[in-house]
Structures are given as C-alpha cells and as structure tokens.
C-alpha cells in the first residue's frame, strides 16, 4: 500500500467532483428510499401486531431473529433471489430497516403506561382515537429512535450494496481495495464515515425536538 499518500484522497475527490456527487446521490437515495419504505411497512405492521394477541409472539420472534442475521448475509441472500443492481440492494436495505423500526414501534406502544391506556379506554376513546391521541404520540420517541438506528445502519449497509451493484460510496472503496490504492479507498470511506456520524448527530438533535411537549418537562 504505497501508491500515493493516504491523505491524497482529498485531491482525488477534488479531481472527480461529478462522480463524487453521483455516488453521494446514489448512497443517499438508497438509504432514504429504503428507510422510507421501511417506515411505511413497519409501523402499520407493528400497530397490527399490538392489536392481535396471537400475532405478537411470532412477529417479534421473526423480527428478533432477523436482527441477528448478519447484514452482509441478507445482502448475500438477495443475490440469488433478485440478482444484482439498485433494486436488490434497495430490497435488502429495506428488510434490514424494517426490523428496528418494527421492534421499536411495538416496544413503544407496549411501553405506554397501562394506567393511561386504561383511562383513555374508560373515557370512551375508540380504538383509532386511542392509537392517534395516546399510543402513537407517547411511543413516538422510541419509534424515532428505531428510525434513527435504521438510517445510520443503512448508511453503512449501503456501502456493502456496491458488491451487488447497488452503487454509492462503496464503489470507490471496492475500487480502492481492488487497485490497492489508499487515496481512492479513503475517498469512499471517509465521506461515508462522515455521512454516518453527521446523520447520527442530526437525528439525535431532531429527536430532542420532536419529543411531544410534556414528556420532557420536569
């Protein structure tokens, strides 16, 4: 590993601005779409799970086992099924993002104080009102933490998506590894690391803001 000083990666990025923008866009698109789709799948599924007693055990079991499956294994498993490209990558990332959002939504709703739910039902809230007035607002901090986990985790996973032709910064890392070229390697790695860390910090800030008033006061 001596071809070029590692810190030359800045120069490499500067020399390839078009490609950099393209990889960033691909990366963000992969993460954004997968998390968005995952939210749309996971939250209704979680609500349903808390409504149907028999559904809860198998669903949380599946989700917990799913969490244990190594992410690369999920990517690996989609290859024989869906081939290579953006869509299989999106599929794998979506599956991986559904799990934490689903689990956190179930935990969030289950975690709402029994007394509060009891009071709400005793006052005559319909099931739908109970969900919208009480359960979802009170579960929202935990749910958002799940979305945060999914997003940051998928920024990393999207790097691996390059292996099945999903694009993103993983392309440069892959190229850098293949060519044993540290500047290219780091031109992919450093932006991804920065993207993940800054997203984590931004979402932490957002979480503080969106917590319903009343939960944070003392």
């Amino acid at each position: 590993m001596r071809r070029g000083e590692p810190l030359d990666f800045i120069a490499y990025i500067r020399d390839h601005p078009e490609q950099f923008r393209e990889l960033l866009l691909e990366h963000v698109r992969l993460v954004g779409f997968s998390v968005l789709i995952a939210i749309l799948i996971a939250i209704p599924l979680a609500v349903l799970t808390t409504r149907l007693a028999w559904f809860e055990r198998p669903m949380t079991w599946i989700a917990n086992v799913g969490q244990t499956v190594p992410s690369l294994a999920i990517l690996g498993l989609t290859l024989p099924l869906l081939g290579i490209g953006f869509r299989p990558a999106l599929f794998a990332l979506t599956i991986k993002a559904v799990l934490p959002i689903f689990l956190n939504t179930v935990i969030g709703i289950r975690g709402v104080d029994r007394a509060i739910v009891d009071a709400a039902r005793g006052m005559g809230t319909s099931d739908r009102q109970l969900l919208w007035f009480v359960e979802l607002p009170l579960a929202s901090p935990v749910m958002f933490a799940g979305i945060q986990t999914a997003t940051v985790q998928n920024i990393g996973l999207a790097t691996l998506a390059a292996y099945i032709g999903g694009g993103g910064f993983g392309d440069w890392i892959l190229q850098g590894l293949a060519m044993v070229n540290p500047p290219i390697l780091l031109a992919g790695a450093v932006p991804v690391a920065v993207l993940a860390m800054s997203t984590e910090m931004i979402l932490r800030g957002v979480r503080r803001v969106i917590v319903p008033a009343g939960l944070t006061v003392t």
């Binding site: 590993m1 790097t159 790695a189 450093v190 690391a193 860390m197 984590e200 910090m201």
Partner: peptide, 16 residues
C-alpha cells in the same frame, strides 16, 4: 460515534 462509522469504511480507513 465510533459505533456509527460503517464497518467497511472503518476497515478502509485503517488499511493505509
């Protein structure tokens, strides 16, 4: 913060 760094990127940064 270390934990949020994607592993592939972390490996790549260490390699040089």
């Amino acid at each position: 913060i270390l934990y949020t760094i994607p592993s592939l990127a972390f490996f790549a940064i260490l390699i040089p």
